[in-house]
Computed example of a mutant assay.
Amino acid sequence: MEQKHTISILVYDQPGVLTRVANLMGQRGFNIDSITVGQSEEKGISRMVIVTRGDEPTLEQMIKQFHKLIDVLKVTHLSSGSMVSRELVLVKVEANSATRAEINGIIEPFRATIVDVSPSSLVIQATGDSDKIDALIELLSTYGIKELSRTGATAISRGAAAVKV
Protein backbone atom coordinates (compact mmCIF):
# COMPACT_ATOMS: atom_id res chain seq x y z
CA MET A 1 0.00 0.00 0.00
CA GLU A 2 1.37 3.39 -1.02
CA GLN A 3 1.95 5.81 1.87
CA LYS A 4 3.35 9.30 2.33
CA HIS A 5 6.87 9.31 3.79
CA THR A 6 8.99 12.14 5.21
CA ILE A 7 12.72 11.52 5.05
CA SER A 8 15.48 13.68 6.56
CA ILE A 9 18.91 13.48 4.95
CA LEU A 10 22.00 15.11 6.43
CA VAL A 11 24.51 15.93 3.68
CA TYR A 12 27.75 17.81 3.28
CA ASP A 13 27.04 21.36 2.14
CA GLN A 14 28.65 20.94 -1.31
CA PRO A 15 27.68 22.11 -4.80
CA GLY A 16 25.72 19.45 -6.71
CA VAL A 17 24.44 17.42 -3.73
CA LEU A 18 20.80 18.41 -4.33
CA THR A 19 21.16 17.49 -8.01
CA ARG A 20 22.62 14.08 -7.16
CA VAL A 21 19.80 13.30 -4.70
CA ALA A 22 17.09 14.46 -7.12
CA ASN A 23 18.68 12.57 -10.03
CA LEU A 24 18.93 9.39 -7.96
CA MET A 25 15.22 9.57 -7.20
CA GLY A 26 14.27 10.37 -10.80
CA GLN A 27 16.41 7.61 -12.30
CA ARG A 28 14.80 5.05 -10.01
CA GLY A 29 11.26 6.29 -10.66
CA PHE A 30 10.69 7.77 -7.19
CA ASN A 31 8.50 10.88 -7.21
CA ILE A 32 9.25 13.88 -4.97
CA ASP A 33 6.13 15.52 -3.48
CA SER A 34 8.26 18.22 -1.86
CA ILE A 35 11.90 18.87 -1.01
CA THR A 36 13.38 21.52 1.25
CA VAL A 37 17.07 22.11 1.90
CA GLY A 38 18.78 24.36 4.41
CA GLN A 39 21.40 24.72 7.09
CA SER A 40 21.48 22.20 9.89
CA GLU A 41 22.71 22.63 13.44
CA GLU A 42 26.28 21.86 12.33
CA LYS A 43 28.41 24.13 10.16
CA GLY A 44 29.06 22.67 6.72
CA ILE A 45 26.15 20.23 6.91
CA SER A 46 22.73 20.75 5.31
CA ARG A 47 19.46 19.01 6.05
CA MET A 48 17.21 17.88 3.20
CA VAL A 49 13.62 17.00 3.98
CA ILE A 50 11.95 14.99 1.24
CA VAL A 51 8.29 14.04 1.14
CA THR A 52 7.54 11.14 -1.19
CA ARG A 53 5.05 8.31 -1.62
CA GLY A 54 5.55 4.59 -1.89
CA ASP A 55 5.13 1.22 -0.26
CA GLU A 56 7.56 -0.21 2.33
CA PRO A 57 9.82 -2.05 -0.17
CA THR A 58 10.09 1.10 -2.29
CA LEU A 59 10.97 3.18 0.78
CA GLU A 60 13.62 0.68 1.89
CA GLN A 61 15.16 0.72 -1.60
CA MET A 62 15.16 4.53 -1.63
CA ILE A 63 16.94 4.74 1.74
CA LYS A 64 19.56 2.19 0.62
CA GLN A 65 20.19 4.27 -2.50
CA PHE A 66 20.62 7.47 -0.45
CA HIS A 67 23.24 5.76 1.73
CA LYS A 68 25.28 4.99 -1.40
CA LEU A 69 25.74 8.69 -2.20
CA ILE A 70 29.15 9.92 -1.00
CA ASP A 71 27.85 13.26 0.37
CA VAL A 72 25.13 11.65 2.52
CA LEU A 73 25.92 11.38 6.22
CA LYS A 74 22.64 10.18 7.72
CA VAL A 75 19.17 9.22 6.51
CA THR A 76 16.21 9.28 8.91
CA HIS A 77 12.69 8.12 8.12
CA LEU A 78 10.92 10.81 10.18
CA SER A 79 7.37 9.68 9.49
CA SER A 80 8.10 6.29 11.09
CA GLY A 81 8.15 8.05 14.47
CA SER A 82 6.84 11.20 16.07
CA MET A 83 7.70 14.37 14.14
CA VAL A 84 6.83 18.03 13.71
CA SER A 85 6.19 19.07 10.11
CA ARG A 86 5.39 22.54 8.77
CA GLU A 87 4.93 24.34 5.47
CA LEU A 88 4.86 28.01 4.58
CA VAL A 89 2.46 29.39 1.97
CA LEU A 90 2.03 32.83 0.46
CA VAL A 91 -1.31 33.35 -1.31
CA LYS A 92 -2.29 36.43 -3.29
CA VAL A 93 -6.09 36.66 -3.47
CA GLU A 94 -8.37 39.10 -5.19
CA ALA A 95 -9.82 41.44 -2.58
CA ASN A 96 -11.67 44.72 -2.57
CA SER A 97 -12.90 46.83 0.31
CA ALA A 98 -16.11 44.74 0.49
CA THR A 99 -14.36 41.36 0.79
CA ARG A 100 -11.36 42.24 3.01
CA ALA A 101 -13.19 41.78 6.33
CA GLU A 102 -14.67 38.50 5.11
CA ILE A 103 -11.23 37.19 4.09
CA ASN A 104 -9.78 38.33 7.42
CA GLY A 105 -12.45 36.29 9.20
CA ILE A 106 -11.55 33.21 7.16
CA ILE A 107 -7.79 33.40 7.79
CA GLU A 108 -8.01 34.18 11.53
CA PRO A 109 -8.69 30.59 12.71
CA PHE A 110 -5.69 29.46 10.64
CA ARG A 111 -3.46 32.00 12.44
CA ALA A 112 -2.59 33.34 9.01
CA THR A 113 -1.57 36.96 8.53
CA ILE A 114 -1.95 39.56 5.82
CA VAL A 115 1.55 40.60 4.75
CA ASP A 116 0.73 42.88 1.80
CA VAL A 117 -2.25 44.96 0.76
CA SER A 118 -3.01 46.56 -2.59
CA PRO A 119 -6.24 48.12 -3.90
CA SER A 120 -7.26 44.85 -5.59
CA SER A 121 -5.50 42.08 -3.64
CA LEU A 122 -4.14 40.76 -0.36
CA VAL A 123 -1.10 38.56 0.23
CA ILE A 124 -1.68 36.09 3.03
CA GLN A 125 1.02 34.14 4.85
CA ALA A 126 0.33 30.92 6.73
CA THR A 127 2.33 28.12 8.29
CA GLY A 128 1.17 24.70 9.40
CA ASP A 129 0.94 21.10 8.38
CA SER A 130 0.01 20.21 4.80
CA ASP A 131 -3.65 19.51 5.61
CA LYS A 132 -4.06 22.94 7.24
CA ILE A 133 -2.46 24.67 4.24
CA ASP A 134 -4.69 22.69 1.83
CA ALA A 135 -7.81 23.70 3.78
CA LEU A 136 -6.86 27.39 3.78
CA ILE A 137 -6.15 27.37 0.04
CA GLU A 138 -9.51 25.71 -0.63
CA LEU A 139 -11.36 28.39 1.36
CA LEU A 140 -9.45 31.23 -0.30
CA SER A 141 -10.00 29.83 -3.81
CA THR A 142 -13.58 31.16 -3.82
CA TYR A 143 -12.14 34.71 -3.80
CA GLY A 144 -9.86 34.09 -6.75
CA ILE A 145 -6.24 33.10 -6.18
CA LYS A 146 -3.95 35.27 -8.32
CA GLU A 147 -0.67 33.69 -7.19
CA LEU A 148 0.38 30.93 -4.82
CA SER A 149 3.84 29.98 -3.54
CA ARG A 150 4.30 27.00 -1.25
CA THR A 151 7.57 25.89 0.35
CA GLY A 152 6.89 22.21 0.78
CA ALA A 153 7.29 20.47 4.12
CA THR A 154 10.19 20.77 6.49
CA ALA A 155 10.26 18.45 9.46
CA ILE A 156 12.16 17.41 12.55
CA SER A 157 11.77 14.56 15.04
CA ARG A 158 9.91 15.20 18.29
CA GLY A 159 11.47 14.78 21.68
CA ALA A 160 14.61 15.76 23.52
CA ALA A 161 17.13 13.56 21.70
CA ALA A 162 18.87 15.15 18.75
CA VAL A 163 19.97 13.05 15.80
CA LYS A 164 23.78 13.30 15.75
CA VAL A 165 26.00 12.63 12.79
Rank of each mutant, 00 (worst) to 15 (best):
residue 108 E to M: 11
residue 141 S to R: 08
residue 77 H to T: 02
residue 20 R to C: 04
residue 81 G to M: 04
residue 21 V to E: 04
residue 157 S to L: 12
residue 58 T to E: 12
residue 51 V to G: 00
residue 145 I to Y: 01
residue 97 S to H: 10
residue 28 R to W: 05
residue 103 I to K: 03
residue 18 L to G: 08
residue 131 D to F: 15
residue 40 S to T: 09
residue 68 K to S: 10
residue 60 E to A: 10
residue 142 T to V: 13
residue 110 F to L: 08
residue 65 Q to Y: 13
residue 24 L to A: 08
residue 131 D to P: 01
residue 71 D to E: 15
residue 1 M to I: 07
residue 138 E to D: 14
residue 144 G to W: 06
residue 108 E to I: 05
residue 10 L to R: 08
residue 83 M to D: 06
residue 94 E to I: 13
residue 65 Q to R: 01
residue 158 R to D: 13
residue 35 I to H: 03
residue 100 R to V: 14
residue 111 R to K: 14
residue 113 T to P: 07
residue 143 Y to C: 03
residue 23 N to Q: 14
residue 34 S to P: 01
residue 152 G to Y: 04
residue 87 E to C: 03
residue 134 D to C: 09
residue 115 V to Q: 09
residue 126 A to V: 10
residue 92 K to G: 02
residue 125 Q to G: 08
residue 150 R to D: 11
residue 132 K to L: 14
residue 46 S to N: 13
residue 45 I to P: 05
residue 76 T to Y: 07
residue 114 I to N: 00
residue 47 R to C: 03
residue 73 L to T: 09
residue 46 S to E: 10
residue 99 T to N: 03
residue 48 M to W: 04
residue 63 I to N: 00
residue 89 V to E: 04
residue 31 N to R: 01
residue 158 R to I: 02
residue 30 F to Y: 14
residue 64 K to Y: 10
residue 123 V to T: 12
residue 117 V to F: 00
residue 44 G to D: 09
residue 109 P to M: 02
residue 58 T to F: 05
residue 161 A to V: 13
residue 118 S to E: 13
residue 64 K to T: 13
residue 155 A to I: 11
residue 104 N to D: 15
residue 140 L to D: 09
residue 8 S to H: 03
residue 117 V to A: 08
